[in-house]
């Protein structure tokens, strides 16, 4: 079976797994399923429990994508880590506010601010 092209980019910043999106739209259900399984696999295999998801370049986001973020949040919490989100465009931030998920997630303007907010050590 041919391997699918990754829809995410992963890197490490100190004790934090940093995730970025390759696509500008996170809408399509098949793509979101792939993103979900990539995230779960990477987080479960990571040495660190903390995760930053950076939304730089993302223009659209559906409720299915929000569902994936909630699943990831539960997984990260179960591993005693923190999930933080950053670089969310204004229109998408409005989606978080409408659904009141801005109360559930730690949202930062920039990845630098988010990285500085994780516990040290």
């Amino acid at each position: 079976m041919a391997s699918e092209t990754s829809r995410l980019r992963f890197s490490s910043q100190g004790s934090v797994l940093v995730v970025e999106f390759a696509d500008r739209d996170v809408l399509d259900e098949a793509a979101i399923r792939q993103i979900n399984s990539e995230l779960v696999r990477q987080i479960e295999g990571a040495k660190t429990a903390h995760v930053l998801i950076c939304f730089q370049g993302v223009e659209h986001l559906s409720s299915a994508a929000l569902g994936t973020l909630i699943t990831v949040n539960s997984l990260v919490k179960k591993r005693s880590g923190q999930l933080r989100l950053s670089n969310i465009k204004g229109t998408i931030l409005e989606v978080f506010r409408i659904t009141k998920l801005d109360r559930l997630f730690q949202i930062h303007d920039s990845s630098e601010q988010a990285l500085a907010a994780f516990p040290k050590g």
Binding site: S62, S63, G67, T68, I70, S74, V95, I98, T99, R103
Partner: peptide, 17 residues
């Protein structure tokens, strides 16, 4: 889906959006 007890349920936000 915006009630505190439903906030961590991954689905059910389409209609409200």
């Amino acid at each position: 889906p915006t009630l505190d007890e439903n906030l961590e349920i991954p689905s059910g936000r389409g209609l409200m959006l």
